[in-house]
């Protein structure tokens, strides 16, 4: 009696009665997801489409919706000639190229060490994970204090014999590496947690067999752990790639894109154009470029994941 509609439809596909019921169910299904869907349209789909449309205009917010004037591809055309955009893109690539590998390597190391230790696993995992769930603005402020000229880090460097330590955030060469270091520190916990889950999925038999064969620890890591964690690594790389392209808060709080524009990244440049210069059209065009970059990364993920799925 209480066979659900889905089952009924599957069992008796030909009967008129059930077809009517299927229609009713589709409707009630839609009704249930409807509210969610409407909110998604209002707060997600509409802004996305609107930003895309805006990228072909020179809208300045103040002139209202009536002031939207289409200028074709002009925004996109001026991108390659905009030194500040290119610099932000380069800085972003630099940031990504440093943060992603460091996060993966250090996250894996942390996970393996914690995994092999018998005691305090949960505590250590939590300690590593805390920065990831901490408020990024608060963390950024604390780190800018650490990086001060007479701050703990510089003083430590003085103690160990470096007479003139860099003044990190105030130095055009050091500001971005300083932000990278802090971002890696925040991300390790995330990578560590995912790796920990991955490690638990590796059968102990393999390690026991390796031990019987007299294989040393390093080889166990390189021949068993790392290859079997490939899907996990892949997942972490993709997600960190995407988040690293969206880096913003650290830059905004710690350096405001400075000194002299040396830490400007894509999202920061978007923010600057939109909310400081009121160039919403241009900012949207950069946002579309960012979207394309992230979309390409996701595309690679899809293709690769399919291949992975067929491998196992």
């Amino acid at each position: 009696m209480n066979t659900s509609g889905f089952m009924a439809a599957a069992v008796n596909p030909g009967r008129r009665f059930s077809r009517r019921r299927t229609a009713g169910q589709t409707l009630s299904g839609l009704a249930f997801i409807g509210p969610n869907f409407i909110l998604m349209i209002v707060f997600w789909l509409f802004p996305v489409v609107f930003a895309f449309v805006l990228s072909f205009t020179n809208w300045d917010l103040l002139s209202g919706l009536g002031g939207i004037e289409f200028i074709g591809f002009d925004n996109y055309r001026s991108l390659p000639g905009d030194d500040k955009f290119l610099r932000s893109l380069l800085n972003n690539l630099y940031f990504t190229a440093a943060v992603v590998p460091l996060t993966v390597i250090l996250g894996l190391a942390a996970a393996v060490i914690i995994h092999e230790h018998v005691w305090g696993k949960k505590v250590f995992r939590l300690v590593f994970f805390l920065p990831y769930i901490s408020n990024i603005v608060a963390v950024s402020i604390v780190w800018s204090l650490l990086y001060r000229h007479y701050g703990p880090i510089a003083n430590f460097l003085r103690v160990i014999g470096i007479e003139h330590p860099p003044s990190f955030l105030a130095d055009m060469k050091w500001a971005l590496p300083a932000i990278i270091a802090m971002s890696v520190w925040m991300q390790i916990g995330y990578a560590c947690l995912i790796y920990s889950a991955g490690l638990q999925g590796i059968s102990k038999d393999l390690y026991e067999a390796a031990e019987i064969d007299g294989i040393n620890r390093w080889k166990r890591l390189t021949l068993i752990t790392i290859p079997l964690l490939r899907p996990t690594t892949f997942f972490i790389v993709i997600t960190s790639l995407i988040t690293s392209f969206q880096v913003f808060a650290q830059v905004q709080v710690m350096t405001d894109g400075g000194p002299a524009g040396s830490t400007s990244v894509l999202v920061f440049y978007i923010y600057q154009n939109a909310f400081r210069f009121y160039r919403f059209g241009y900012a949207s065009a950069i946002a579309v470029v960012l979207f394309v970059i992230i979309f390409l990364i996701t595309l690679i993920q899809w293709i690769y994941q399919k291949r992975l799925a067929s491998d196992y």
């Binding site: 019921r21 009713g24 409707l27 009630s28 009704a31 249930f32 409807g34 509210p35 409407i38």
Partner: peptide, 20 residues
Amino acid sequence: LSRTRAVMVVITLILLLSGP
């Protein structure tokens, strides 16, 4: 059962349409 369901559908739809 289907009547209750129908009523629910109608109510939800009304809410939905008037929502915006």
